[in-house]
Design a protein around this nucleic acid. Structure first.
Length: 519
RNA sequence: GCCCCGCUAGCUCAAUUGGCAGAGCAGCUGACUCUUAAUCAGCGGGUUGAAGGUUCGAGUCCUUCGCGGGGCACCA
């Protein structure tokens, strides 16, 4: 005889209290649901549920063979648990759509089949409630795969109404402030969360297989270094010490190279106290890795292999969609010298100072920078070159394309190219104007490194300096860091690209928002 | 930090030139044991993001503020 599960801890004071519903016409949605909650308790059923073993993922249940009910063949008995996202009443039978993270299935609850108590509880179900159902899996007369409920277990009442209708949730702010609902009612949100994990796992597997050691380095640091960005400030009480949150992973990892860990990487959160946009979140995830006795070429091969593996993890083909366009990740990726691209699109030699200035004027790129004091200073030549590159060349880089041999002044942590001291051994991988990866032959000469740091510091406020002088890092270099290749990849941007997401908010489950206003 | 746009019922959206705040879904009551965006009959539901102003009259016009979106700036 089908029964409702009532082997729950009874709260006699609650269950013996007679429910005294206020007239529904005077209630709002939350009050109606609270009233139903009391009625459920009054039936002796715990509306908050408890452990529920043996349920199977809904997708797995749906894959079982299904015969039409009442044809003499008994289908398999299954248990499922999930959220009620659809409800249709047909007299003495309810048809529910029950959702879990693997899929949806119809559940049929008939008054005759579920028993008196079960039916009473079924009548108190709301959209958004969590239930467990055990019953035969088969098909209705209409051919819909269905679990025909023999027992119903209340797992949790939802006291708030859920979004309805097949329009789903469209208000961006509502989705972000109710991400848990977005995961349920916007299919792509959950899918992208899964794809992000797949990509991260692929990266780890790929690097682990090549002998890279994954490490964790401090988030709290005395000096923010390794990149140019404003840090978040914080404070350690017991030490009476001001600290910052890291803005890059670079310097601690290089210390590990000195320490003999030849292949090392970290995937970690970094924090930059800057503007928020569709491609910037104040906290984001970086991959940085270093390979002793390697160089730029080592990193290029590694990057290509890594990307091909990540694409394979989320796509059946090497060509993936990006908006109206596509990106083809079939190796080898295109390679282009920075200076050649500059000449091709800007139309002059990037080392010809006069010509670059003329071109900057032609493309309306400002020749000066505003200083903090409100004045202006003329841009350094290489900065101007870089601005022109960003303005004129980048839009053409649909990629994937490795751009290499950067102007040296732009790269304080990079080794100069042998025989061409104006160039640095650096590449960036571009895809549709996005910088996906950034790699160097690392500078391991402490004397040059210190001089570069000091030069960067001149004329810049402490906060805005490209790379703050980290004496301890210089000391580490002085003990001998092996020549090495290094690579950085912005994980969020990578996931955006591979999941065809045009805002970083689609690949970060909880992007930073201002707190909601009270009242 | 600057500019533009948006904010109306639980959700998705209407509301003409400034003139009675509406619909679908959800909710409530009722009918129906094969529905599936169920259907049918009926009923509720609002400080139009907040505060001020103009006006006989404001969802609509003005000011300030809040939150979000887009763009710019910042940002290796």
């Amino acid at each position: 005889m089908p029964v409702l599960h009532t082997d729950l801890p009874r709260d006699t004071t609650v269950s013996s209290a007679p429910s005294n519903p206020t007239p529904p016409e005077q209630q709002d949605h939350a009050a109606v649901r609270l009233d139903k909650l009391r009625q459920i308790e009054a039936l002796g059923v715990d509306p908050w549920g408890q452990r529920f073993d043996g349920h199977r993922p809904i997708a797995e249940v749906r894959a079982l063979p299904a015969e039409t009910f009442d044809t003499g063949t008994n289908g398999p008995t299954v248990r499922i648990a999930g959220r009620v996202v659809g409800r249709r009443r047909m007299g003495k039978v309810y048809f529910l759509d029950v959702w879990d993270q693997t899929g949806k299935v119809q559940v049929m609850l008939g008054a005759k089949q579920i028993g008196d108590l079960g039916w009473k509880v079924a009548e108190l179900l709301d959209l958004g409630d969590l239930i467990g159902v055990e019953g035969e899996f088969g098909k209705t007369k209409m051919g819909e795969p269905t679990v025909r409920g023999a027992t119903l277990t209340y797992l949790t009442k939802s006291l708030e109404p859920h979004p309805t209708g097949y329009y789903g949730m469209s208000d961006e702010e509502y989705r972000l402030r109710h991400r848990y609902l977005d995961l349920i009612y916007t299919e792509s949100t959950l899918r992208k969360a899964h794809q992000r994990v797949k990509i991260l796992r692929t990266i780890r597997n790929h690097l682990d297989a090549q002998g890279y050691l994954e490490v964790e380095t401090p988030v709290l640091q005395a000096v923010a270094s390794g990149a140019a960005a404003r840090p978040f400030q914080t404070h350690h009480n017991a030490l009476g010490l001001d600290l910052v949150l890291r803005i890059a992973l670079e310097l601690p990892l290089k210390r590990l190279l000195v320490g003999g860990i030849e292949k090392v990487y970290e995937i970690g959160r970094v924090f930059r106290n800057e503007g928020i946009s569709h491609k910037h979140n104040p906290e984001f995830t970086m991959l940085e890795l270093y390979c002793a006795y390697g160089d730029l070429g080592t990193m290029m091969d590694l990057t290509e292999g890594l990307l091909v593996a990540c694409v394979a993890a989320v796509s059946d083909t090497p060509t993936i969609p990006w908006g109206e366009q596509t990106v083809n990740f079939t190796p080898p990726f295109q390679r282009a010298r920075y200076g050649d691209l500059f000449r091709q699109y800007v139309g002059c030699d990037m080392q010809d100072r006069a010509a670059v200035k003329a071109k900057a004027a032609e493309f309306k790129v400002p020749l000066t920078l505003k200083t903090e004091g409100g004045g202006t200073v003329e841009k350094e030549h290489d900065v101007l070159v870089n601005d022109l590159f960003g303005e004129v060349v980048e839009p053409h880089l649909t990629g994937p394309v490795f751009v290499h041999d950067y102007p040296a002044e732009l790269c304080p942590l990079t080794k100069r190219k042998r025989g061409e001291p104006l160039l640095a051994e650096r590449f960036e991988l571009y895809v549709h104007g996005m910088e996906l990866a950034n790699a160097y032959t690392e500078l391991n000469d402490p004397i040059t490194q210190e001089a570069t740091f000091r030069k960067q510091l001149v004329g810049q406020s402490e906060e805005d300096s490209m790379a703050k002088l980290d004496e301890d890092f210089i000391r580490a270099l002085r003990h001998g860091m092996p020549p090495a290749g290094g690579l950085g990849i912005g994980i969020d941007r990578l996931v955006m690209l591979l999941t065809n997401s045009h805002t970083i908010r689609d690949v970060i489950l909880f992007p930073l928002l201002r707190p909601e206003a009270n009242t």
